[in-house]
Design a protein around this nucleic acid. Structure first.
Length: 422
DNA sequence: TCTGGGGTCCTAGGACCC
DNA sequence: TCTGGGGTCCTAGGACCC
């Protein structure tokens, strides 16, 4: 049996840990630049605030109902996520983290008639120990465990844990489950299935395997099997990321080349740091920037450059040099760039680098310097030391908007001191 | 006026090989 | 006019997830 633990309204719950006065009140967390809604409390959902909606479209509701807004604070969410996950990890032999707020784990070492009570205790432990409310679903496949966790979340009578153990329970659960809410069924697949007369998970599960495959190809067949109780979806997370991205939308568009260069250099350094943390190097670098896709009145422009690196590297300085050269080749003066990003691709383990016989760089020396820089950041906090090219010029404070950001309660002592002083 | 960020997997089609 | 068969690898785009 699989158990799936899912944190309820995770980002909002993180904010509430340090703001207990916001329990039972409408709260939302916003995306970058305070643009869209990315997490909602139950009270905010009840007000009709939809996932992903831009803030400016719900201003009236927010003001009239007194909804509390937060800018996203990923340092806080990541830290609380680690705490939740480490508690669960202690209770299982097999553990797979699926996202910042979800994980699958095995509970086979517990007798089946005690598994539900065991998970209920786990829910209470996490609530008391970290302060985050969690729902757990138990079933024989990951997809059914996801279904069960949604019931656990929806009905308080389950005390946070719902199990799909018998076929009778499975049929009942799927009968009341909308097809579009099934894990892996997105907008397109839902529309296709609805057109074929399928609106519930049970209707889909009771069609033939050929039907599932014809409609939705291989992923559809896997979902079909999982809904019938077979464990066929493997999510064993790759030890190494295959691509690493840093991208941002700017609060207002940038056309100044220097300003754009600062951003690209900074994205590059962030990506490279992640690359080094997983002990890998990349062979390809992708840089892009484009105008706002929402501005139908403006001419669209999309700048993109791929750089194939002569020798695979994770060195920030080297990657920044290539990225900025690429940007300068593709940059067009006068264009209003609203979003930009850097992607590192063709990632391989750092011990698999093929050296270049005619290499002119002293890589041993470069890497030694890089390690010193990383060490300084490890010891004194992220972004203690930066490259000059990342250094923001005086007017770049306006590039991003984060008016409602909570303090870094758990990860930065300076922030906590600020809170106390405040 | 204001619209997020970071990933993975699958498939079809083209290039290329013998 | 008529022009094989079978395979792999790579890539772009689509779809989906949180």
């Amino acid at each position: 049996m699989y158990a799936l633990a899912d944190c309820n309204n995770f980002f909002v719950s993180c904010e509430r840990v340090f703001r207990p006065d916001l329990e039972r009140r409408p709260v939302i967390v916003l995306s970058g630049n305070d643009g869209c809604v990315v997490s909602r409390s139950n009270e905010a959902k009840a007000l009709g605030i939809k996932m992903g909606v831009p803030l400016y479209q719900i201003r009236t509701i927010v003001e009239q109902a007194g909804v509390t807004c937060f800018s996203s604070n990923f340092a806080l969410y990541g830290d609380l996520s680690d705490r939740v996950m480490s508690i669960i990890r202690q209770h299982t032999s097999h553990f797979e983290q699926y996202s910042i707020d979800e994980c699958f784990f095995h509970i086979d070492h517990i007798p089946s008639d005690r598994q539900k009570a065991y998970c209920e205790q786990l829910v209470r432990d996490i609530r008391r120990g970290v302060g985050i409310p969690v729902s757990i679903g138990i079933a024989s496949s990951k997809t059914l465990a996801k279904v069960a966790s949604k019931y656990a979340k929806k009905y308080s009578g389950y005390h946070g844990v719902c199990e799909i153990r018998t076929d009778e329970q499975r049929v009942k659960a799927l009968h009341d489950f909308e097809i579009g809410d099934v894990w892996g069924i997105g907008r397109r697949a839902k529309a296709k299935l609805t057109a074929a007369g399928i609106t519930t998970a049970l209707q889909f599960a009771e069609r033939s395997d050929a039907f599932a495959r014809n409609m939705l190809h291989k992923p559809g067949l896997l979902i079909w099997q999982e809904l019938r109780g077979q464990d066929v979806i493997d999510i064993t997370d790759l030890p190494m990321k295959q691509s690493i991205t840093t991208s941002r939308t700017f609060a207002s568009a940038i056309s100044d080349r220097t300003l754009l260069e600062e951003q690209i250099a900074d994205f590059c350094a962030r990506c490279a740091r992640q690359l080094r943390m997983q002990h890998s190097v990349c062979q390809q670098l992708f840089v892009y920037a484009h105008t706002s896709a929402f501005r139908a009145d403006m001419e669209q422009h999309y700048l993109s450059e791929i750089v194939n690196l002569p020798v695979a590297t994770a060195n920030s300085q080297e990657l920044i040099t290539y990225a900025l050269a690429a940007l300068r080749r593709a940059y067009r003066a006068g264009v209003q760039y609203k979003k930009a990003g850097v992607v590192l691709m063709k990632i391989i383990p750092e011990n698999a680098v093929v050296p270049d016989l005619f290499d002119t760089k002293d890589r041993t020396k470069d890497n030694r310097l890089q390690r010193v820089l990383d060490h300084i950041d490890d010891r004194h906090g992220k972004r203690t030391i930066l490259f000059g090219s990342q250094l923001p010029s005086s007017d770049s404070a306006v590039v991003y908007k984060n008016d409602h950001k909570s303090p870094l309660y758990t990860t930065d002592i300076r922030d906590v001191i600020t809170v106390k002083a405040g």
